[in-house]
Amino acid sequence: MSGDHGELPVAARVRQLEDQVIAAGLTTDAELDEILAGRYRTGSPANGARLVARAWADAGFRDRLLADGNAAAAELGFGASGGGGYGYRLKAVQNTAQRHNVIVCTLCSCYPTSLLGPSPSWYKSFAYRSRTVREPRAVLAEFGLELPAETEILVWDSSAETRYLVVPARPADSAGLAEDALASLVTRDGMIGTAAF
């Protein structure tokens, strides 16, 4: 029967629910099309990379970013909001020679989407969510990131309304590069903490 969702293939359940939600006047085809076309999706790792590159190039900006992430992001024209436009506190955490930071959300999948875009599938996986807080060194090794034994690891579990951005250590061979070139070195995984930069 049509009321028994469990027996429909998942794509058909989605279509049925869309039809019901539209029929109830809660959204429209046009609105869903706009969302799917990315009209509301302003987030991209390029945004986070611009913040990191500025922090690498400008120590004053780096200090402001670490002190108040929202204000520093606003300097470059970026807001701090989740998928539905709801605000979060942005906290940037800096990697150094002695310390490495990595971000996880063990309860669900909280993520700074306005600065990093939609999260990769592995970020939402049970394996990443369960193991990163317990054995981060082993998880990072699965990403190919082998840290020296003496490096201190800080795992940030985004369990409330703060979203984290890792500011990787500036690559040693990047001296003299302009900010745009620096930004092109920064990866999404570097800003999650599962890559060196």
Binding site: V133, R137, E152, I153, L154, V155, W156, A160
Partner: peptide
């Protein structure tokens, strides 16, 4: 401290709590 949470490990876990 990971050692307190899991009995082993040298890392720290920072959790945001009300």
């Amino acid at each position: 401290a990971a050692r307190d949470l899991w009995g082993a490990g040298s890392h720290s876990v920072i959790v945001d709590l009300w």
